[in-house]
């Protein structure tokens, strides 16, 4: 028998229990289903819908509203996750796996390749006395395995180190940098010319024994991450560009990144 006093109170309690809000972090977006998975302090809520004015992003910290006891909707995104940062930052250095020095001269005009005693060393440009023209081809491991999946790269700096040489060259010389897409160059005589693709990049000047690093062009980084670029070549036929590079940290690539927490 209906109770005219108690029933309205029970209905209110029932509504209150079925309409509730939670705070959580988006962990997955199902584009086909247009729904979200939200982690609310360990309680995983799936099938969460959003309104048109909100564009969900994984790791967004949001308020969600439960309607009717089972249907969840996003109320909105909070400006900052309470009690925690929304991303963490990291960096990793990727060194060349090896380098191959490619050269030719007036007396031996075919290209030859060999590996220097210093695995990062070689010369670029034309030696003014011996008339050798050199190029250094740096091979790198694949970049994506060096980064956490989901990372956003915020910077990628490549380092060059100029070494002293019997012929000093000009006081300031630029690395003349190309991309390449080869994984190995057969060592020996009569090899192909130095591999290069795309445009040349002259990042800046180096004095003798100076170490400097420069931000890699983003298009190069994209190609490198995608695997269409395998490494870089320092190559020029010009006397004014002659210099020797090598030693520890030469050709190191420093990747800075952020990842959602």
């Amino acid at each position: 028998m209906p109770d005219p006093f108690l029933d309205p109170i029970l209905r209110r309690i029932d509504r209150a229990q079925r309409t509730t809000t939670r705070m959580g972090v988006i962990t997955d977006i199902d584009v086909d289903d247009a729904s979200l998975t939200v982690d609310c302090s360990g309680d995983i809520i799936t099938g969460v819908r959003w309104y048109d004015h909100y564009a969900p992003v994984v790791a967004d910290f949001i308020d969600i509203l439960c309607v009717g006891g089972s249907s969840w909707r996003v109320l909105g995104k909070l400006s900052k996750q309470l009690g925690a940062g929304s991303v963490t930052y990291g960096s990793v250095t990727v060194s060349p796996s090896h380098a191959e020095f490619v050269w030719r001269s007036a007396s031996a005009p075919e290209w030859s390749a060999y590996t220097y005693y210093d695995l990062r060393a070689g010369s670029q440009g034309r030696h003014p006395l011996y008339d050798n023209t050199g190029a250094i081809v740096y091979m790198f491991p694949a970049l994506p395995p060096a980064l956490p999946s989901g990372a956003t790269v915020t910077g990628a700096r490549i380092t060059f180190r100029r070494l002293p040489d019997s012929f000093t060259g000009l006081p300031l010389v630029e690395p003349v940098v190309w991309q390449h897409d080869v994984t190995v160059i057969p060592l020996g005589h009569d090899v192909d010319p130095p591999p290069t693709t795309g445009t040349v990049w002259r990042p800046g000047f180096l004095a003798v024994e100076q170490v400097a690093s420069w931000e890699l062009p983003s298009a190069w980084l994209t190609a490198w991450l995608a695997g269409t670029t395998k490494g870089i070549t320092l190559y020029t036929e010009t006397i004014a560009d002659y210099m020797v590079v090598g030693g520890g940290s030469n050709a190191d690539l420093l990747l800075s990144y952020s990842v959602p927490t």
Partner: peptide, 16 residues
Amino acid sequence: LTPTSVVAIAADYPEP
């Protein structure tokens, strides 16, 4: 996007 990971380049990447 690679078979094993997905990484992005930031919009404010310092372009040389």
